[in-house]
Simulated assay, not measured.
Amino acid sequence: MLDQPSPSRATLASILGIAVGRLAETPLPGRVHDHWPLQPESGGPALMVRVPKLSHLGLSPRAALIYEAQAFRRAEPSGSTPRLHGLLRVGRRLPWGGLVVDAIDGRPPRLPDDLPALGRALAGVHGLPVPVPARRRPLLDPPDPVGYLLQVVRSQLDPIRDTLADSVRRLLDAEMAAAAATVGADRPAPRLTLADTHPGNFRIRADGTAVMLDVERPVYDSPAVDLAHASLPTSLTWDPAVTGGAGRPDIVGFHRAWATAVPRPVAATVRPHVLAYRRLIWLRTTTWACAWAARTDVAAALASSRPEVADQARRLARFVDPAMMEAARQQWTGPRAFTAEELVP
């Protein structure tokens, strides 16, 4: 779906039926949404209007709005995500609609100190009851989640395979073959997972608890999806607002904070899959970065006068650096690999 410009301040105020002065002068821009802070009514909560610009999942505007609204509603009982207060319908003035949610008063995570808080926030989501299959729609609920993730990887890699250096192509092919070998007869026990849990998508409140902001494309799958996406090297370095870094003890501590907070039966179902999903989510992110590099004049992006463009190019260029790929792979292959019991005791 094509990126759509955000409506003007006056247009959005008219749609909301409020005085224009209650909206911020300009939105906080994001890759998928523009975020308009909204002054609360007397005594009411601070709010944010999320205005989508595209669908990560390739959905129509109406279907994407329904999907995102359901995502917020289903995650809300966890206390780890903003509450949904209202929907703005898709229409000529608002081509992708909008959502009114809590505005979270918090700061970006500081690594590694805030990683345990992220783990506990995810545990709140993963501990929610799981609906019977017929009631999981419209959220994705793949019967073969490993096969689904591998198909996403292939769809990103196949069109640009011939543009890759031989060493990178061999490395990715080897990782895909190893990932495919993990496909078994038994589906990993599904829970509600948020699926885009890099640290930059969280805010840390004054009490030290973490809130996941961008709840737009969850899926019923193993919580190992979120654990990997929150702590892989590609995620820890993705958002420039997130400071610091994380070593092996910090990544172990993040997983153990999650395992302590989640119901024990949930942790037991995740343990056998935690390393396989680390590989799968790394493949998903890395092949996406490879596709970006194949479609982009990387040198021009690195030299851009727009700081946000140059910064993103620097980060993505690191993702496709063979040395960084090898460093990531050492987390699940070779003598220094994590063990499942080390992460989820």
Results as ranks from 00 to 15, higher is better:
140 L>C: 04
159 P>G: 13
142 P>T: 01
146 V>F: 14
190 P>E: 06
175 E>H: 06
171 L>Y: 06
176 M>W: 00
179 A>P: 13
190 P>N: 06
193 T>C: 15
196 D>V: 04
194 L>G: 07
157 L>N: 09
155 S>I: 00
167 S>K: 05
196 D>Q: 05
136 R>G: 09
187 R>L: 03
165 A>S: 15
153 V>T: 10
172 L>K: 09
192 L>E: 00
189 A>I: 00
169 R>S: 13
199 P>Y: 01
145 P>F: 09
205 R>V: 08
200 G>R: 08
205 R>T: 14
147 G>W: 10
203 R>A: 13
169 R>Y: 00
142 P>M: 10
182 T>I: 04
195 A>E: 12
188 P>R: 06
151 Q>M: 08
190 P>M: 01
151 Q>C: 04
152 V>N: 06
160 I>F: 14
197 T>R: 10
173 D>Y: 01
150 L>G: 00
179 A>H: 02
187 R>C: 02
147 G>M: 03
147 G>E: 07
162 D>S: 14
204 I>E: 08
199 P>K: 00
173 D>E: 15
203 R>M: 13
180 A>D: 15
173 D>Q: 11
194 L>D: 08
195 A>S: 15
202 F>M: 06
156 Q>T: 06
160 I>T: 10
150 L>F: 03
192 L>I: 08
154 R>M: 10
151 Q>E: 14
196 D>Y: 02
137 R>H: 07
189 A>D: 12
188 P>H: 05
145 P>A: 10
161 R>E: 13
199 P>M: 02
172 L>E: 06
149 L>T: 08
